[in-house]
Amino acid sequence: MSFGWLLGRSASIVYTILVVSILVFGITQVLPADAAVTLLGENATPEALAAVRTRLGLDDPYWLQYLHWIGRVVVGDFGTSMRTGQPVGPEMFAALGRSLILAVSAILLMLVVAVPLGMAAALNQGRFADTATSLVSFVGIAFPEFVTATLLALVFADTLQWLPATGWVAPGESAGGFLSHLALPALTASVVLVAHVVRMVRSETLDVLHSDYIRAARLKGVPEGRVLVGHALRNALLPVVTIVALDVGYLLGGIIVIEEIFAIPGIGRQLMVAITARDLPSIQAGALIMAATYALTNTLADMAYTVLDKRIRYD
């Protein structure tokens, strides 16, 4: 990781955010709703509406409005929510924090399940365990989040009553409450990830197991356990890092639905509320923050890759 590489990646993150900001601004500005009407209500006088439009700069050309907006975003001011009258930035970042807790839990849960499962399938290639795993992953991929979420809630919350169906408890408030409220959403988010990554781990492990250095290790008498964990696992897991990073985009999209269903005050729910209420500053901020998170995650994954695999150097 040379300085030049980091500079290039930073430039590409900035470019990503620039493109996304234009895209988001472009889409939201053509919203049929008039922001002034949204603020003041249907019965506002034309004079009051005109005053608000002037104050918000809604009469300016689009490019000028964009420059005003992005100029404020650069210094960390995302504007004021049209729904609550509060600054959007702090609210969105607090929500992002809760979403990230959910996302990271889902990824951890996925790793704990998918890695051993994928390896087991590879070691039993062609046998029952392998077929069963690929069947399960095939089915898992086909369930959209809202279906998984409703079915899990039906079983674990409504029928068995083991876990709460909705809500969020901050980790500082009560550890037990936090975990029990997190369980179903994290499980839902991890289903598709598990299905995806199991297949990946399986095929990577198979590739690695057929490589020369594994044969060499076995021939020189390294115990089988060490061959698998010390030699095979490490190399089989490398590509998984990239896949997980790419899946973060999918995860962030899925989180919108999951937070909506389980009533979690994360960034996805904020966005849904904002879209329903046509709250432009919140929509713009939320979408921009989500995209930036994704771009950052992918860069971090590439950096992790170089640390894990010494053969790869970005110059």
Partner: peptide
């Protein structure tokens, strides 16, 4: 391609939500 990569940083569902929010 760089621009397409940048657009792909917006999760598909979010992009669809924004568009439906606009189009109705």
């Amino acid at each position: 391609m760089r621009t397409i990569d940048a657009v792909m940083a917006v999760p598909g569902l979010l992009l669809a939500l924004l568009l439906v929010g606009t189009l109705g």
